[in-house]
Design a binder for these strands. Structure first.
Length: 223
DNA sequence: CGCCAGGGCCATA
DNA sequence: TATGGCCATGGC
């Protein structure tokens, strides 16, 4: 039902406005945020991001590390872990930040160079990177590098469950469902996933009935 | 106090 | 291939 999914998208868009995601200044900051937010509240990610320092500020503590790929690659693991501590799982994520940054190094930390490559090739490389699963890979490709790949996350699954939308089960199946029922558009994929998260965080958190949800009476089914 | 958050890895069967 | 344990902080 193409019209159904699209109508949901437009209802969310008119209700919440243009989301303008991902909240980050640079493509590399999206990459870092995508790893840090794994199973973690965004507020904690913001605290972790804020802990990265300015390379030119000599008053910073020795463990301070600038938010740049070069600095993260050369940083000692314990120091990096200390910086990202508020994001949780800091020992794992410190390693993951290094491995995903090593991937970015293949393109000389150049976002434009990444954008010249085929989507599926990049997706395969990212999925082969330790610490990068399907959601993180698609978040990076869509939000850092503007590739048309739909992001499926916990919010997306809850969203389908509550509406309800029978998008199937499993990451690849749900992703394919959305992509098959929407125009292949970076802007639509970007906005739709952002709106699902924004709407979910506001109205449809886990174990909470949806109150004031713009989607209508169907939304509120707990499944 | 317990539950949960914009997952992914790894061991086991 | 499909579960289940594990990782860890901070907000509510």
């Amino acid at each position: 039902m193409i019209s159904t999914i699209e109508s949901i998208y437009h209802r969310l868009l008119s209700h919440h406005g243009h989301p303008r995601w991902w909240p980050a200044k640079t493509p590399y900051e999206v990459v870092v945020g995508a790893v840090l937010t794994q199973n973690t509240a965004w507020g904690n990610v913001e605290k972790a991001i804020a802990n990265f320092g300015d390379a030119h500020d000599l008053s910073l503590s020795p463990q301070s590390i600038p938010l740049s790929p070069e600095a993260i690659l050369s940083a000692d693991l314990p120091d990096l872990a200390a910086v990202i501590r508020p994001a949780g799982y800091f020992n794992q994520k410190a390693v993951y930040l290094k491995t995903v940054t090593e991937w970015f190094a293949k393109y000389d930390f150049d976002a434009a160079a990444v954008r010249r490559e085929p989507l599926e090739k990049l997706r395969g490389e990212l999925l082969a990177t330790k610490g990068v699963g399907p959601e993180t890979a698609d978040s990076i490709l869509l939000y850092a590098f503007d590739f048309p790949t739909f992001v499926v996350d916990a919010y997306t699954v809850r969203f389908c469950d509550r509406y309800p939308i029978d998008a199937g089960k499993g990451y690849a199946v749900v992703k394919a469902y959305f992509e098959a029922n929407l125009p292949r558009s970076v802007e639509v994929y970007n906005n739709f996933h952002a709106l699902i998260v924004i709407n979910g965080a506001k109205h449809c958190r886990k174990k909470a009935l949806c109150e004031g949800c713009p989607l209508g009476v169907e939304c509120g089914r707990v499944g």
